[in-house]
Every structure is written in C-alpha cells, then in structure tokens.
C-alpha cells in the first residue's frame, strides 16, 4: 500500500498522535495526583495548584482539538490505544483465553 503523504493529512495525523499521547500522560498524572491526595501527602494548597494546572491543561487541549478539528480522531485513537492495552493486559493475566486450554482438557 502506498503511503499517502500530503501535507494536510500528515499534519492531521501527527497532531492527533501528539495530542492523544498528551492525554494519556495527563491521565497518568491525574492518577498519581489522586493517589498522593489519598495518601495525605498534599496540603490543600498543593492540591489546588495541581488541580488548577490540570484544569488549564484540559482547556488548552480542548482548544487545540477544536482549532484543528481533531476531536473525533483523537477520541478514536485514544480508544484504540485503550483497547490494545486491555488486550495486552488480558493476555498477560488470562493466558488461557489465548492458549485455549479449555478445549484441550477433554479429548
């Protein structure tokens, strides 16, 4: 298959990828922030600063996605990544699903 390289589609694709990765990183940060908060490591002042930074990032990301019309494609890619991760995790914790040992048992 020939790769279609036109500037518009390249920009669109790369931007989608970058924005999606930033979203993934933001999720990791959020999880970590919540964990710290639950552990009582953060003062209310620190919590607020962290939360406000995340809020600003939310807004900036929404703006970028809207400006470039990539809201939909970011959502798709994000979901695709989630699916892949789920599949990998599933494969690691649930190897029988793939090894099909349920079947080998009988005959």
């Amino acid at each position: 298959m020939a790769l279609e390289v036109n500037e518009e589609s390249l920009k669109h694709g790369v931007l989608t990828l970058v924005v999606t990765l930033v979203e993934v990183i933001q999720e990791a940060l959020e999880t970590q922030a919540v964990r710290r908060m639950e552990g009582g490591d953060l003062t209310e002042e620190e919590q607020n600063r962290l939360g406000e930074a995340l809020l600003e990032l939310d807004e900036a990301m929404d703006q970028i996605k809207a400006d470039h019309g990539i809201t939909e494609s970011v959502m798709d890619l994000h979901r695709g990544l989630d699916d892949v991760v789920n599949e990998v995790v599933d494969k690691l914790i649930n190897p029988q699903r793939w090894a099909q040992d349920a079947q080998g048992e009988v005959r």
Binding site: G80, D83, E87
Partner: peptide, 19 residues
C-alpha cells in the same frame, strides 16, 4: 485491511510471540 485497529492488533501478536 489498513484500519488502524487492525494494524495495532499486530503488536499484540508480537507480544504473544515474545512471551
């Protein structure tokens, strides 16, 4: 088919082989 979902799945096959 060059759908991204399908292409990404190839990675899984790779990990499976690794294991």
């Amino acid at each position: 088919v060059p759908l991204i979902g399908v292409n990404l799945r190839a990675t899984i096959a790779g990990i499976e082989t690794m294991i």
